[in-house]
Design a protein around this nucleic acid. Structure first.
Length: 122
RNA sequence: AGAGUCGGCCAUACAGUCGCUGCCCAGCUUGCUGGGGAGAGGAAAGUCCGGGCUCCACAGGGCAAGACGCCAGGUAACGCCUGGGAGGCGUGAGCCUACGGAAAGUGCCACAGAAAUGACACCGCCUAUGUGCCUUCGGGUGCAGGUAAGGGUGAAAUGGUGCGGUAAGAGCGCACCGCGCUGGUGGUAACAUCAGUGGCAGGGUAAACCCCGUCCGGAGCAAGACCAAAUAGGGAAACAGACCGUUCGCGGUCAGGUGUGGCCCACACCGUUUCCGGGUAGGUCGCUUGAGACACGUGGUGACGCGUGUCCUAGAUGAAUGACUGUGCUCGACAGAACCCGGCUUACCGGCCGACUCUUAUU
């Protein structure tokens, strides 16, 4: 069970960190959201969330999405070492159930890792 | 038992594992580990009112704009709440009311109707009055004139009913009701009620302009206070290498570093250090002890006030309160704190408690 925690050191907390990732990121587009990934040597896996009021005007909906993302990221964190990730939600997520969103998230982490490896080679 | 009214309360529950954010204690490597304990709502929402708090402005006062508008009270304050009055709805418990002014002025009111407010004579009614005609001398009828009782129109036609009165009628007179004025009585008041008096104001609309009265400086926690990298620029001080001159203020000459270049020359750039002030990223405070919660007592019809005791009950900031598993049932609605309170409004699966009303039946 080691490593399945989500301390603040595993979060992107500053706008500078967000800009650094977005500036030169590998992107994948699963249904309802976008993942930006960028490799940083000697860094733990880090995630930053961006769920704006454009996605939903209801705070409950936005919280629901963020909680699902954090939970999925927490479980897959050991496979994502050295990667800084930014999650950007889209309005389509509101109409999806918790199970659907979790399914798409769980499938996306691996694809993001592959994409980053490729861009590193190229 | 059924139907209903009002008030209050709850918001899937329990257990286990993992995860997140503050707080307290201990340890060390000072941001981690271990332990303990806490962690969304009745609306946290809409941001529609009122206040606290912060900064700015401000001698005093006025205008404008806006809100409010029966009376009294409660409150920090309110556009809120409580009690009362008036009007309306309901068999009732109860509920609803933007409830000041239309004899200050302006605007608007289709159509219909004879006439729409300085009212009006279409039909009808009248023959008392003036006059013409007819006459069987009873009267009949035209015109003038009188008449707002009746018909008809309209949202609205100078108050309603009855009696008297009259040529027919009319507040013309009278009684009761309505309205205005004056006074008495009850009530803090709104208002109620009684007596007198005037024959009687004249449609609606003020959530149309408006008039009267009351209240109101502006911006908001991204308020505001503090700490403070890197880079550029500002100010001050010290040190400015060697030599020469000096009127002791300084002046002159030669050097230094970095970059370009194979190198000399050359070209370009640069005083150094320390401190000060402003200030960006970032950080800290504001930030949860407060018009506070609960219990008891007490004053008040009540909103609420007072007294005593006990308690501390989220504080995030790229933004915490979640995930999984199991069990139970009525199968779980609307929905997530963001400086803090008091209200209003809107959303909502349902459940529980208390008081009361109506209908029916039984004893």
């Amino acid at each position: 069970m080691d490593g399945l925690t989500l301390p603040r050191s595993a979060r992107l907390l500053k706008s500078a960190e967000f800009r650094w990732v977005m500036a030169k990121a590998s992107k994948i587009y699963p249904p309802g959201f976008v993942l930006f990934g960028r490799r940083l040597v000697d860094s733990p896996a880090k995630i930053g969330l961006a769920v704006s009021r454009k996605v939903s005007k209801k705070a409950v909906e936005r919280n629901r999405i963020k909680r699902l993302v954090r939970e999925s990221f927490r479980r897959y964190k050991p496979e994502l070492v050295g990667l800084n990730i930014v999650f950007v939600a889209k309005p389509a997520l509101v109409n999806m159930s918790n199970k659907q969103i979790s399914f798409h998230l769980d499938n996306s982490w691996g694809r993001l890792v592959e994409k980053c490896e490729k861009s590193l080679d190229g």
